[in-house]
Every structure is written in C-alpha cells, then in structure tokens.
Write a protein that binds this DNA or RNA. Structure first.
Lengths: 140, 140
DNA sequence: GTTCTTGCAAAATATTTGCAAGACG
DNA sequence: CGTCTTGCAAATATTTTGCAAGAAC
C-alpha cells in the first residue's frame, strides 16, 4: 500500500496520520506478515520503540491492526477491513516453529463456533503451529 | 487429580516426578483453567519462579502441558492426553477481556483446517475473546 | 562420586510510563 | 497560546540463565 492509501485508511479509522504513524503503518504493510514490536523496531530504525508502541496502541484501539499471538509473542498486522469498530477480516495464521515466521492464510477464514449461552465474542486468535514448507524442504 | 495420578501421568510422559514438579503439576490441575507463570507463582508460593519455569519447560517438551496464548500472555494447562509425542486433546478457549480469565471449552474441539500443500501442523492455538457470561451479568 | 534438581541472584527481554521539548493548528 | 505528538530515559514486568549447594542414585 502506498502512502496516500495508508493515509486514507487511517482517516477512515479516525486516526490522524502523523509522520510516525505513517511510517509504522507502512512498515506493517510492507511486512506482508504479522510483525512484532521488535521486528518493527529493526525495520524502522528511525523511531523510538515508545513511538512505535504508541502508534500500535492507537491502531489497536481503532481496529486498524489485528493483534495476534503466535508462539513467539505478540504480533501486529494491518487490518484490511474498512470498519473501524469491528475486526471482520480475521483469518488463520500459521506459525513455523522452525524458522519462527508467521504466515497469513488469508483465504482461510476463522470457522464459526457455537458457544454456550452468554458468551459474547469480539475477536478471535487462531494460529496453527508446525513446520512450514520452506523449512521442510531445506531443514537447516 | 491426586498426587499418584499425577506421578503416573508424569512417568507416562517420561518425566521424573520430583517434588517440585509434582507441586507445579498439582497447581495446574487444581487451577481448572490455563494458568500463567505469575498465577502459578502466586498459588504455589513455596517454589522460586525459576523452578516453576524449569518445570513448565520440561512439561512443555514432553507434551504434558499445552501452551496457550490468550491476549494476556502465555498460559499453561495440563494436557489430558496420554501420548507424550503429540497434543491430541486441544480444544478452544475463551478469554474474557473484562475479567481476564481464560476458560476451557473442553467440548469444543479445534476444527480441522485444510492447509495448502507442504504445511505440517503440530499444534494449534485457538482463543476466542470477548465478554464472559459472568461479566455480562455483573458488569463492574 | 556423578548426575540431576533446586534456589538465589542476576542477566536479558519486553512492555509501559513520565516528562520536557517540539510540531501543529 | 493550547493541544497533540515525539524522543529519551527510566520504571515495570517477564522470561531466562549461571552457579553453587543439595538431593538422588
């Protein structure tokens, strides 16, 4: 996504697109997979971790990112939804226990689950773990 | 589960049942829900966190516990499987964003997912998030 | 005695906040 | 100006290791 698309997306989610926020959003967009705080820090370099943290916190509140826990900590991923109230494009992720990468399986929606009475579902975290094709092919 | 059941279970998983490990396993068993390191520390009191950590690491390696990430960090749960190589009783969990508790939905197995060629699935983490019945009834 | 286990302290990480300076309007 | 944003430093919290003493075999 280019800068103006990101700017637009942020406005849609009620976020003022400051320079730092655009940089963080861009890094997320270019990651093509969920990134952790540390990965973002490494990729961005120019912004202090507190700045990244605050951007992510805001994005999270405004549902501009998904928060995802794989076996390796918390990761963030740009949300493609245009709705600033709900996450509606959640999908399954795969976390490779060998190389540590987390891959989006965009085509695989999270299955509906029938919960007992009284539970209100707001979001879901569904991560499959195992070995990815790359690591099976070239085991180090 | 009582002490001798736990001892037996541990042996089944190739773990020498030392006193510390029994205490940790017992705490997990009595929790009736996935517990974090900190929760275990609080419940146990008598063992240093490094001891708990080392017990959990071992349990994890021998598949005596499930590792679970809800929105609130890592949690551990006794695995009811008698197989020390694979997790085969994974089920869905619900994490309440209000009270922070994570509840097991033992009846709800994790749905089968058809992944593209080349992915080897070893385990899965499926956590639904929202508000639990208790918190909807008595919102603080 | 050799190996495994434990507790303590401390290192290494990760997450989060306070505050003053700067940018924006 | 007044408000929002940022960087830096520092406080917290969390996870992990080193090492020496003790227990188990």
């Amino acid at each position: 996504m280019n800068e103006s698309d990101l700017t637009f997306l942020m406005k849609e989610h009620g976020i003022k697109p400051t320079s730092n926020r655009i940089i963080v959003a861009k890094a997320l967009s270019e990651g093509n997979r969920p990134l952790s705080m540390t990965e973002l820090e490494d990729r961005i370099g120019s912004i202090d971790k507190s700045g990244i943290f605050r951007a992510l916190t805001l994005f999270k509140e405004q549902h501009l990112v998904h928060v995802l826990e794989d076996g390796d900590g918390v990761r963030y991923e740009l949300c493609h939804s245009h709705d600033h109230a709900v996450d509606n494009d959640m999908h399954i992720h795969f976390h490779c226990e060998h190389c540590g990468e987390t891959i989006c399986l965009e085509d695989l929606a999270i299955p509906e689950v029938q919960l007992p009475e009284g539970f209100l579902i707001q979001s879901a975290n569904f991560v499959l773990k195992g070995i990815c094709p790359k690591c099976q092919k070239y085991p180090s």
